[in-house]
Design a protein around this nucleic acid. Structure first.
Lengths: 157, 157
DNA sequence: TGCAAACACTTGACTCGTTCAAGAAAACGA
DNA sequence: TCGTTTTCTTGAACGAGTCAAGTGTTTGCA
């Protein structure tokens, strides 16, 4: 967990203007890994009550483009953000409740980076998503498809 | 490329009722790999001019649930469908134009199936998406982010 | 410190893929 | 062929995300 001062430095270091919404968004993403935009908006408004949703969308885009946060979006989910960047780690997603956990790939540094046939593409990233059931959902005998594609919120906290 | 008769048998084999929309949707997915729903609707209407979009959505869901087609959805894209199922192959997506190509994973049969730390999840699938530039986009010096997240259509055909 | 230019934020409307719901039509086992 | 069940049609609705115009902040520089 970083301090406000550090967030400001991170913004400066990325050649981004330092504004209250951006500092708050950066803090929210650090505090709530894998949170969706709506959760981030709520978190930001605890700091800056009157921010518009647009400001949060804009900030998230700026931070993502600058590489300060990473955007992930498993199929059927809305966009989610995390502050752990630069290590090309992967994610495990629960098919039932949507919980997300981090995973370092078994293959090591640059996992699965080379496809056996790249069809002439210049590949720069390999994104891996493991699908399954989280500990809670794999024990509880609920219909696995029941709450699929629900607006998952903060399940992982 | 299969025949109408074969599509009907595939539906029967999956315990699905055989209807004109479903046969046409199954045919369209076979004919246009990685097509989005809108493209599939257009293709289906060449066969069955008056199908509703809802019928196509319903058919695609039924076919997906039955395992006759596979749904993929790279981040920032709408849902896409393909008929190549059961072999756990992966995809290469162009960041610029959205073209999609198939890729057998370098790791072989069940690629990257085991995360180094599964956080207690019961993993049943590893989905890999390679991101990069397709042959056309990597030679043409256009802004790579220009048409990102566009409604890509039939680029791959 | 003050100014100007560039950039970010607010507000509110809007897009578009997808889903919901009610009734009509079609498929299929008996 | 009949009746039940499932699917299709029609039309409205939802929601994440974007667009656009105008106002407010930030920051480099005098």
């Amino acid at each position: 967990m970083a301090t406000t001062v550090e967030y400001r430095q991170m913004l400066r270091g990325a050649a981004l203007r330092v504004t209250r919404p951006r500092v708050a968004v950066l803090g929210a993403v650090h505090a709530h890994p894998h949170a969706d935009t709506d959760s981030i908006i709520s978190a930001v408004r605890r700091d800056v009550p009157k921010v518009s949703h647009q400001a949060v969308y804009d900030s998230l885009r700026a931070l993502t483009d600058a590489g300060l946060v990473r955007r992930i979006q498993p199929a059927g989910s809305v966009a989610r953000y995390e502050a752990r960047v630069g290590d090309n780690h992967h994610h495990i997603v629960c098919r039932s409740c949507g919980a997300i956990a981090d995973a370092d790939c078994a293959a090591g540094e640059a996992p699965c980076m080379t496809a056996s046939d790249d069809s002439g593409f210049a590949i720069d990233e390999a994104e891996v998503i493991y699908w399954g059931l989280c500990p809670a959902c794999s024990t509880v005998p609920t219909s696995p498809s029941a709450n699929l594609a629900q607006p998952w919120r903060e399940h992982h906290v």
